[in-house]
Design a protein around this nucleic acid. Structure first.
Lengths: 247, 247
DNA sequence: TCCTCTATTTGTCATTTGACATAGCGCGGG
DNA sequence: CCCGCGCTATGTCAAATGACAAATAGAGGA
């Protein structure tokens, strides 16, 4: 299910050119290059890390979309968050032992597979990078905090608006938008599972928002029509994202 | 609102004797001692960190209970999680700039106030401790993941069971239980805000669970009566907690 | 092209949860 | 000792959301 690829050298990593990512020194980049074992491709829909997998590999997402989730034994699924290029996969599990959550690919995906046993070297010899790892972990926690507020305290209408504006902003920072449009590889079932709603109610809520003229969503093509109204409805006003580290 | 205290030396920290905490070398403990500026007391109900506070102080919780929360502009509040002794406060904010969430004391609380500007020294000279900070951040993220599953996909009955068994286990690991009893300084309003439920519905759900004989809760005194049933209802079976780092 | 499969859409009805009103209870202050 | 206040408890009704059923619409394969 996973396919080895010819890897792009880290120095030439196109993501590093995006202003959203913090620059690294040449030496740091050289270390990151050594940290990486290989690049692998995973097709849309496939599993990247399974729930409960022991000592899962360490990845960072190079291209494509994925999501983290947990399921209850009777099958109910909660999507914890969506992963976009630059996000780490499996670090939480690396720290704690095994994977408390699963990760699936939403689109075809390219991963940088990192050497678990070099992480300790990273902490010992590259404190700046160690700091970056903590930063990313803390940042991820902040994203989930927001998700928890949505699921717990926002109405369905507000949650859906929140999710869409949030994904739009993240994708925009990565240069994945064209004008106010975006390819959103997220089905209504995924949105429902991320928001703790039923599929049907999610659908009806999406239609209601579109009837209000806030956005258009047709065959995974998302067009943001009234950003201000979206932000007000979601009660979500974020300062422009800070530059974030990239491993 | 915050009162300076005569500090307990870290080497004599009573928490370090608990098996739940990972031992540290003498040198590490000495550094942690230097990291700490002072111990401060905060009374029950007071604010420890305000939402949006810029560069909030760095604390670890030495004694008492607290909680993290976010509010929407119209006042709806979501409690993100509860904090018990050994938990860090304000690290996420330290990494990201300012506090995305507030922290309030549930009981009278004692905090170790750490020097923000020595964190970098920690990363540079004590990679093991840096690793520990990341571990704690990742662990916290895992706790919130679980909360998100509750709020999103569990029924009110299941969520309440989950919250109570979860707090019971954490308190137990810290030696805060007596037999199967525990002082639970959490009002029904707090539970409601943690679970995304209304106060009234939380109350009714609590009564229902008690009628089922799962536990007793009277004036903040919680007695666990049927642990197996609680775990099954909550669909929550956790391996005994791993030893965790202590700063 | 037709067929099949999956995702989306819509309607109807059931259930869960929330809102409001009100009462009881226990604790601390005068 | 009484009073006031915050937390808990309970009943009734309303609103939000879920469950089920069924139709439609695209997407990809034979």
């Amino acid at each position: 299910m996973a396919e080895k690829l010819r890897a792009v050298p880290c120095v030439k990593c196109p993501m590093r050119r995006l202003p959203i990512f913090k620059p690294n020194t040449a030496e740091e980049i050289a270390f990151i290059e050594r940290l990486r074992i290989e690049q692998v491709g995973v097709p849309a829909g496939a599993s990247i890390v399974r729930e409960g997998q022991v000592k899962p590999p360490l990845y960072s997402l190079f291209a494509g979309w994925a999501f983290r989730y947990k399921t209850l034994t009777d099958g109910r699924r909660q999507i914890l968050n969506f992963l976009l290029p630059g996000d780490l996969i499996g670090f939480q599990a690396h720290m704690l032992g095994d994977a408390a959550h699963g990760v699936d690919a939403l689109t075809d995906v390219v991963l940088c597979h990192h050497a678990r046993d070099k992480i300790w070297t990273l902490y010992k010899n590259y404190p700046e990078l160690a700091f970056d790892v903590t930063w990313l972990t803390a940042h991820e926690e902040g994203v989930i905090d927001d998700a928890l507020v949505s699921v717990g305290r926002r109405s369905a209408l507000e949650s859906v608006a929140m999710l869409l504006i949030h994904l739009y902003k993240r994708a925009h920072a990565l240069g994945l938008t064209e004008g106010n449009e975006l390819d959103l590889p997220v089905s209504q079932q995924h949105m429902a599972d991320a928001l703790g709603l039923s599929l049907v109610h999610t659908n009806k809520t999406l239609r209601r928002l579109q009837k209000l003229g806030l956005f258009k969503l047709d065959r995974q093509r998302f067009t943001l029509l009234n950003r201000g109204a979206m932000e007000r409805l979601a009660d979500y006003f974020e300062k422009p994202l800070d530059a974030r580290p990239l491993l």
